[in-house]
Design a protein around this nucleic acid. Structure first.
Lengths: 172, 172
DNA sequence: CGTTTCTTTCAGTTCAAACAGAATCTACAG
DNA sequence: CTGTAGATTCTGTTTGAACTGAAAGAAACG
């Protein structure tokens, strides 16, 4: 079992807290942090020991991380166990997570708003007001989606480059 | 007590679920949804009845929403009670929330990363690897911060307009 | 002032998500 | 085929956030 340095512990704990604030399970986030900092792929058993959580808990959490596509199992010669490693590219990691959270949360919300606007009964009292509010919210989510789609079309690394250059648009 | 239409109920429930997925209390999100859809400011008592939650729960939740700056108390002539209303501008609402979540979550994470990089003991085994990982993560958070700062400098509505026009950058 | 009306705080209580450990399942070696 | 190592699933149990109701605290009124 790898013993952790103070810095590593700090990072793992912070990442775990950060996860909970964004609706991601603490253990899931901690495991990701551990793998991210690990120079080699780790077997589930070792992860469980290092973080002091149940082996079964690691199993479930790893599954979640594999679901996001940011952790994968690799095999080590002469070892039957699965070893897990985190993706290295930070930008790609966040891109994956954002893309999927959009699909799981933003898209259904747009769908709900669209359906609500359809179902609105104009004869109902205050329908006009409700429509306006729903439309405003829907407009926002449409814009977010458009922004997301446009970024997806950019070649890898472009956002990074654009940021490094700084945008030219400034307050008039 | 205002009786809710089916569409309104659907919106409020959905918004509540959405909240929980992003680390925001379900009741807080539901109250916001209710106020957002309400054509008039509502007293706490009425909110509690409409959503079937304790009066005290409403009090705490409203406080949270006031903290974000997206709900405020208004007074109605001839009524001693506070009436609460939601901000109408969806863009401004999200801007406020994003700005504050950045301050509460992104900034401390950057700080943690900065401190970790300082504290790293180069004599420690694997320090070089850890440094590289921390630096990559820090770079990402720096970029996010820069993006955020640049957007803040844009005049209100510009992002909206840019999106409406569509960016000119395309895959080569 | 004392009373009334509304709001906030506080001290338990409830409940759902997270978790541990046992049981089950799977794959492979012998 | 059998035994063993490892992974997964399942069934309670734990825990902390969310919540309630009671009590305390403000503010407005006569």
């Amino acid at each position: 079992m790898a013993t952790l340095t103070g810095v590593q512990k700090g990072y793992i704990l912070h990442w775990g807290e950060m996860g909970t604030r964004w609706g991601i399970n603490r253990t899931v986030a901690q495991i990701h942090a551990l793998l991210y900092l690990s120079p080699r792929a780790l077997p589930a058993e070792e992860i469980a020991e290092t973080l002091s959580v149940a082996r079964s808990n690691v199993s479930t959490s790893i599954r979640e991380l594999e679901g996001w596509g940011i952790v994968r199992a690799v095999h080590v010669l002469g070892d039957r166990r699965e070893h897990y490693e985190s993706m290295k590219d930070v930008w790609e990691m966040f891109r994956l997570v954002i893309e999927q959270r959009k699909r799981r949360e933003i898209d259904p919300t747009r769908e709900m708003l669209r359906r609500s606007l359809e179902e609105l009964d104009p004869k109902e009292a205050g329908a006009e007001f409700t429509r306006e509010r729903l439309a405003a919210m829907a407009g926002f989510f449409d814009a977010v989606t458009e922004l997301h789609d446009q970024m997806k079309r950019l070649p890898t690394g472009t956002v990074r480059k654009l940021l490094r250059m700084g945008t030219k648009v400034r307050k008039k």
